[in-house]
């Protein structure tokens, strides 16, 4: 690891003044330290934001929750209201990493984590995200890469497992910068590689995610994740679903996919297919078919198309019944 200056920021303002494209924020570190060790990133300074007051709390806010960016995944999992009112988020967090990783990783870090594409992570391969000319994943081993938005300059999958759940709840991200604070809708927060290949979200180098704002949940919700191993693994495909129910009918449906696109991928056609329908095996299956429409898999990941259908169907049924399927 290249050495760097270590800056402890005591306030949001101090952090923002210290941050730049050469001075990166350090929160849980589980993502960042490995990027530094592998020389993917070599900043001149790290700005430790864990000491900033006010970013470590989960508070009630307009009937929902205001979650500080430094709250760890373990703290969220232990929080009664997250478990009881936001099951799609709780289930998404439950399967992230290991107990150790969840003890260190923060919600802000989960949203801002850099991709785990092995070509991005290995300095000897060409990667546009690292300033190169080509993308080694397109002709290379791409079994874990995107199946949606694969015509762009980068076929990474976004690493955030919390992202799809936050999308179906309509969360907002509070961002602090030199000009003050602003709220961005969670879907506007994440950006496609076609917009700017070097980054995955709207943050400028001197901007900081300070909070996630969760509105009150409006119905039933669940997340379903498909993976190789039951323990410690990345998802191959996942779906978060939120349903506003009238009896057994879905008045509204929000469905978002994870681990299949460079951003949390909203499945609008699946939402439309489910809207106004009685939720059962058949209608959930029909919506799941729609969720996979538009997929353009790469040479090695056609299997993910079926995993998307499976994840969506099971997430819909889990949301409607309140049981894990």
């Amino acid at each position: 690891m290249k050495n760097f200056a270590y800056i402890n920021a005591a306030s949001e303002k101090a952090a923002i003044e210290s941050m730049s494209d050469k001075a990166l924020a350090l929160a849980g570190g589980t993502n960042l330290l490995n990027l530094l060790k592998e020389y993917v990133l070599a900043p001149e300074a790290l700005v430790n934001i864990k000491g900033i007051a006010g970013l470590n709390a989960i508070e009630s806010f307009e009937g929902g929750l205001k979650i500080g960016a430094n709250v760890t995944l373990s703290e969220l999992l232990d929080h009664a209201e997250v478990r009881g009112r936001y099951p799609a988020l709780h289930q998404a967090l439950y399967d992230i990493g290991t107990p150790q990783i969840r003890n260190m990783s923060t919600l802000g870090g989960n949203l801002c984590a850099r991709p785990h594409c092995w070509y991005y992570r290995y300095e000897y391969f060409d990667c546009k995200k690292r300033g190169g000319q080509g993308c080694a994943a397109i002709a290379g081993d791409n079994e874990f890469h995107a199946i949606f938005a694969t015509d762009g300059p980068c076929v990474m999958i976004h690493p955030s497992s919390a992202g799809p759940a936050l999308v179906v709840y309509g969360a907002k991200v509070k961002i602090a910068g030199p000009g003050g604070s602003r709220d961005a809708g969670i879907e506007e927060f994440f950006t496609l590689p076609a917009a700017a290949v070097a980054r995955e979200n709207v943050l400028k180098p001197n901007e900081l995610v300070t909070h996630v704002l969760l509105p009150p949940p409006n119905g039933k919700s669940a997340t379903y994740e498909v993976r190789h191993k039951e323990s410690h693994d990345w998802p191959l495909a996942m779906a978060s679903v939120a349903l506003t129910m009238a009896g057994e009918t879905a008045q509204e449906a929000r469905i978002c996919l994870g681990a299949v696109a460079p951003v949390p991928w909203r499945a609008a056609a699946a939402e439309a297919a489910l809207k106004g329908k009685v939720v059962n095996e058949t209608t959930a299956g029909e919506a799941a078919q729609k969720a996979a429409e538009g997929a353009k898999p790469l040479s090695g990941n056609k299997y993910k198309v079926q995993l998307v259908r499976t994840a969506v169907k099971r997430a819909i049924l889990a949301a409607a019944t309140g049981r894990r399927v």
């Binding site: 790290l46 430790n48 864990k50 260190m104």
Partner: peptide, 13 residues
């Protein structure tokens, strides 16, 4: 009081 991987924590912390 929290289990962590010490390889992912800076000594400064």
């Amino acid at each position: 009081g929290r289990l962590v991987n010490s390889c992912l924590v800076f000594a400064a912390e």
